[in-house]
Structure formats: C-alpha cells, structure tokens
Design a protein around this nucleic acid. Structure first.
Lengths: 250, 250
DNA sequence: ACAAAAGTGTTTTGGGTACACCCATGT
DNA sequence: ACATGGGTGTACCCAAAACACTTTTGT
C-alpha cells in the first residue's frame, strides 16, 4: 500500500495494519477519468506491469482524512480538494488474491493483514499540472474497466457508486467544475458521470431554480460560436437555502 | 473497546489498532431505541456509571462484517440480522477525550490508538429475549441524547443520519418490522425514525404501488377495534422490480 | 454563408398534498 | 352504545418529460 516511503519510515511513523486508498476522479474533455499508478511486479522470471490506486499507511499522529489529504497532495499537487471516505475493505486475504501482487507488496508491509479505508476524491483536471507532478501514473478513462491489483477493482466499483450517490445529494459537481462554468459544462459533467443524456431545456429549467447558482456578467471567450454565460456556485447561499430533503437529481 | 475477552485473548487473536462499534437500533411500542452498555469507571476515588456502544477488536482471521456479526450475536442473541458499516472514526485522541474514560480503557488495549469502524444495525425488539441475553445493557430512547463515552455520541449522530439516509433508498424498514405487519405499523415506524407524521391516505396510496408488499389473507387478532390486514415483504419481487432511482421516501 | 453551440415555451402526464367520513371489532 | 383504529376518494398544484426553432459568434 506504500510506494513512496522506506520500510524504516513505516516502522517509525505508521500503523502497520491500516491504510487509505484514494480513487481520484477527474473530469476533462467530456470524459470521466480516474488516477491509477503503474507498478512493475516481477514474478517467476517475468515482469508484470500492473495498476493500482495510490495508497498509504495511516501515520501514528494523523486521522484518516489527513492521510487522504497527504496522498492527494503527493499525487496531484493540490491541497484542500474534496475527499470523502466511502467504505472499509477488510477481507483478510485482500492482498493475497493474486500471488504476484502479494509477493510485490509483502516486502513493503510490516503485517500481512492490512485493512484499508477507501476515499474518493474529485479534482478539476485543469488545476492539475500533470507534467511535473505525476510520475508512473496516468488518468485512465473511468469506464475502461481496467484490471487492477488486489481488491482495487472492487474499490473502484464502490467509489463510483458512492460518487454517483453523493452527487445527487450534495453539491459535489462544483468540485469538478472550474470556478466559473457554463450550464452546458455542468450538464455534460452529469451526463458523463451518469452515462446518460438530459434534455437541455428541462435541465436549465431545473438548475435555474437553484438560488445558489449565480449568473455572472461574464461570457465565454475564444469559442467559435455564440459564447455562453458563465455561472459560479455560491456556497453560502447554498447553506442558507438548502433543505433536509434537497436533492440534485437531474 | 473490549469487554468480554481477556487481554491475553486480544494479544493472540485480534488486531490491536482496529475495532468495530455497533449502534443497534430497535423498535418497540412506537419508540426508536438504541442499545447501550453500562460501564463502571473508577477515577480519583469516585466511580462513574457511564454508557457506550458495544464494540470489539477485529480478529486476525475475520473481516469487519464478521466482527460486527459477532458483536450483534453477543448482545442480542440474534444471528443474520442486518448490519452495515457507515463510517470510520480515526481521531488519534478519540479515546483520550475524557481522562476517566481513557484510564478505564487503557488496561484493555495493546495500543493507545484505536481506529474504529462504526456499524449500525436494525433489530425487531420482539425477536430479542432481553431477560436472558443482555446484562449491563439497556435499550435507551434514541432521542434521549445520552452522554456517552469517548466519541460515541458522535458515532450515534452519524449512525442515525445514515440509518435515515439508507431507509429512504433500501428496503430496510422490513428489518425492523415483524414478518407480518400492518400498514399502520409500517407508517408509525417511518414516523418515529423521521420524527414526523404522514397522511394515512397518501401514505397508503404510495405503498400500494409497491408490488413487493404482499397483502395476506390474514388479519390482526386480539385488538379491540377493526382488525387490520397483514402484509409481508417479498424480497424476490423487490429485487426483480427495483429500479436504479428507486426511493422509499414517504 | 456556414458551422456550432446558446438560449428559450408550451403541452401533457403523473405524483404530491390536503382533506373527512363510514366501517368493523371488542368491551 | 361507545371507543378505537381501519379503511377509502377527490381536487388542486406542481414537477417531469417530450419536443423545435431562433440567436450569436467565429471562420
């Protein structure tokens, strides 16, 4: 679960049996992406190229949200981005499901049983400087159904389920959008995450009722068509006007 | 986090840094209840009577669902009852928030840092034989706002939030009802959990659309008024007819 | 002028909500 | 006969969904 720290550091600083794994979703060019890291896994005279989500052990003095923030900073260079725990994965054999994976991870562990807390996160890809920050990592299409190490495919499924669930009940969509965005950008984002399409007029009627969606005196530039009005999200207004039963279903 | 096992057993069998705490909800006589255990906490020449949720460390060979099942069996005598993880609590100081609590728990721990996974559970109180099973425990009114040990008040708040959330999106209500129930019992249960009231006719119109709610050729007995028809939940029918967006909102 | 996306209203349908009386049973 | 909860229908309003054309800009 640990790639960036030596065994000695683990012994000194971390809890050997608890890790955090992060499913980092990003949005770009009408595609939902997810960050995976490449690992070279030598096994029986072969070398496998495999992929997994970034993860890390929990340090002795931090809570799991701090662990997740630390991982997100390392992977994306960003701080204060949205992240949320969604599920604990605790199968005693979760690291041993394939021999080569277990052989790869064993020397990095102090204990062969690691319970991991899954976090999902949303980042706006235009905020990420891919060239400098990310090595041995790629933004994969989230619907590509990659084979991942350990139980990470299962972790992905649960993360996507929870992302969709939460997106309908919390204003998460604004974590994925730039500060100023068009209504079409917002609509496309829902469409790509829920893998569907919405009627433009009905969609706009619905979002126009949201008092916390502020139309700006500003329009798109650099597009070869009628430029769209930009909007921003007013979190304060949202907190003031939200109701218990509110939902973001489109 | 551990009351029923000696320190030696912990050393042999369990993971010292990970526990499961269970918020067990039960329904009876129009009241939502929650199971708390009494602990006697001696501190500075006084003895405090305090309450907490039942919890236990995770054993080396079990996943956290098995840990939760084990706790539920110990506390209620019931097996195969609904339980669901809802959140991880990982504040490094969560056991040290009050001195007397920490002094009490310290000798029961191998490690002063324990991360706990919160589970909530739903039981039908008519299935529980309180007289024989539960010692040093009581079913408290869930809305009593008890002061609990450690971070257990926070755990309760999150459990109730998740219970309500899930109740609207999964057929959990049937875990709390007896096998055969009346529509009024079902309505009262929603009302007590959401602390509100619903119109009887509108409520019935809504549930009558649920194909998996089977009217039986059987009526209540022993009531001094018109006896109500009994219904049962057909889980197979539910699985067949449920849709992605289904919800149980009343 | 053309391409490309922005922006805008009406109609139909179904669900949510508010509301009051008679019925069947036990005591 | 009375008390108690069981059981039922209608009217209004609003939200969801289906559907097509004009506008503005860049090239």
């Amino acid at each position: 679960m640990e790639e960036n720290t030596s065994n000695l550091d683990i012994a000194i600083e971390t809890i050997p049996t608890i890790s955090v794994d992060c499913v980092i979703f990003g949005y770009d060019a009408n595609e939902l992406k997810v960050l995976v890291r490449r690992e070279t896994v030598p096994y029986e005279d072969k070398v496998y190229l495999e992929w997994k989500f970034p993860g890390n052990h929990v340090r002795k003095d931090e809570d799991i949200d701090a662990t997740a923030s630390r991982i997100l900073k390392e992977q994306t260079g960003l701080e204060n981005i949205f992240a949320k725990q969604f599920m604990v994965f605790s199968d005693p054999n979760r690291l041993k499901r394939r021999k080569q994976d277990y052989e790869w991870v064993k020397p990095r562990l102090q204990d062969d049983r690691v319970i991991t807390v899954g976090f999902y996160s949303l980042v706006n890809l235009s905020d990420v400087d891919n060239s400098t920050i990310i090595e041995d990592a790629k933004w994969a299409n989230a619907y590509e159904n990659m084979v991942l190490m350990f139980d990470h495919s299962e972790i992905f499924d649960e993360a996507l389920k929870k992302l969709r669930y939460d997106l309908l009940h919390e204003p998460l969509v604004f974590e994925l959008l730039p500060e100023k965005f068009t209504l079409t950008q917002m609509q496309k984002l829902y469409e790509v995450i829920f893998n569907t399409t919405y009627d433009k007029r009905n969609y706009r009627r619905k979002v126009n009722k949201m008092a916390y969606l502020i139309p700006l005196d500003e329009i798109q530039t650099g597009v070869s068509h009628k430029p769209a009005r930009l909007y921003s999200f007013d979190r304060e207004m949202y907190e003031k006007t939200r109701t218990e039963r509110f939902d973001f279903r489109m």
